[in-house]
Computed example of a mutant assay.
Amino acid sequence: LKGNQGTLNEDVRLFLETEAAKTKNSAISSQYEHVDKGHGRIEIRKCYVSNQIDWLTQKSQWEGLKSIVMLEETQESKGIISVERRFFISSLDADAEKLANAIRCHWHVENSLHWVLDVVYNEDRSTVRKGNAAENMAIVRHMSLNMLNNAKGKFKNVGIKGLRKKAAWGNQTLSTILAQGF
């Protein structure tokens, strides 16, 4: 959740923080904790989920809404502790372990895709900002990335960035990539 959905983010945040702090009679339906150690840091992820959402005034705006989630990540590195809380709504049942894993997988995919787009297309340096141009360019980049990924198997030992260059240098490579579709 972000601040662009009216009071939804704030409502969910207040509810889940209050309920997670309770020791008795909490509306938390499920919770899960996972600890990772590595790279000189300790990371603790706690997931709190509630299926008690009838009170949520915005519920009707989200078809299939079944649960609300708070993910609390605590990191300790070199004696410095940082805590971050993020909030989500979900159409999944209130299973904290399943939701925590789904959130982690989603961000892994998002971060990987962003890295590829930045390396291959220098997306972070794009100055396209007017109207719908930025969104349109993002769609074009994603489509071309999908075509490059689909064509990668036809070219041995060539990465996405190299395949893009190869397509610019020769019509045969370009035709092979375009024939892949997206």
Score class of each variant (00 low, 15 high):
27 A>L: 13
106 H>Y: 13
64 G>P: 15
90 S>K: 07
94 A>G: 13
42 I>S: 04
92 L>I: 05
19 E>W: 03
67 S>A: 06
35 V>Q: 02
108 H>N: 12
99 L>T: 14
25 N>K: 07
86 R>K: 13
89 I>N: 11
83 V>T: 07
16 L>A: 00
78 K>Y: 03
65 L>T: 02
25 N>F: 07
31 Q>S: 08
21 A>N: 15
38 G>M: 01
75 Q>K: 06
58 Q>R: 08
117 L>I: 00
115 W>T: 10
80 I>T: 05
66 K>R: 11
105 C>W: 15
73 E>M: 06
71 L>A: 01
20 A>M: 13
116 V>K: 08
112 S>H: 11
83 V>H: 00
101 N>V: 05
23 T>P: 00
105 C>P: 04
52 Q>K: 01
58 Q>N: 10
84 E>I: 10
111 N>M: 02
106 H>W: 09
120 V>A: 15
75 Q>H: 08
53 I>E: 12
79 G>N: 08
28 I>P: 12
34 H>G: 00
23 T>Y: 10
86 R>V: 09
116 V>Y: 10
15 F>K: 08
30 S>H: 05
109 V>L: 12
121 Y>S: 10
81 I>C: 12
96 A>F: 13
56 L>S: 00
37 K>I: 11
63 E>H: 04
29 S>R: 14
49 V>C: 05
110 E>S: 05
27 A>H: 13
98 K>N: 14
87 F>V: 02
20 A>S: 13
42 I>D: 03
76 E>S: 02
21 A>G: 13
85 R>N: 08
48 Y>A: 01
117 L>T: 07
108 H>I: 15
45 R>H: 07
53 I>L: 09
98 K>G: 11
14 L>F: 14
113 L>E: 13
60 S>H: 13
14 L>V: 09
34 H>I: 07
37 K>P: 04
76 E>G: 00
39 H>D: 06
95 D>L: 07
25 N>R: 06
114 H>D: 14
15 F>D: 03
39 H>P: 04
90 S>G: 03
75 Q>E: 07
36 D>C: 02
69 V>W: 08
19 E>Q: 12
119 V>C: 08
72 E>P: 00
111 N>L: 03
92 L>R: 13
65 L>D: 07
29 S>I: 07
113 L>I: 12
89 I>D: 15
54 D>Y: 01
113 L>Y: 12
39 H>C: 05
34 H>S: 10
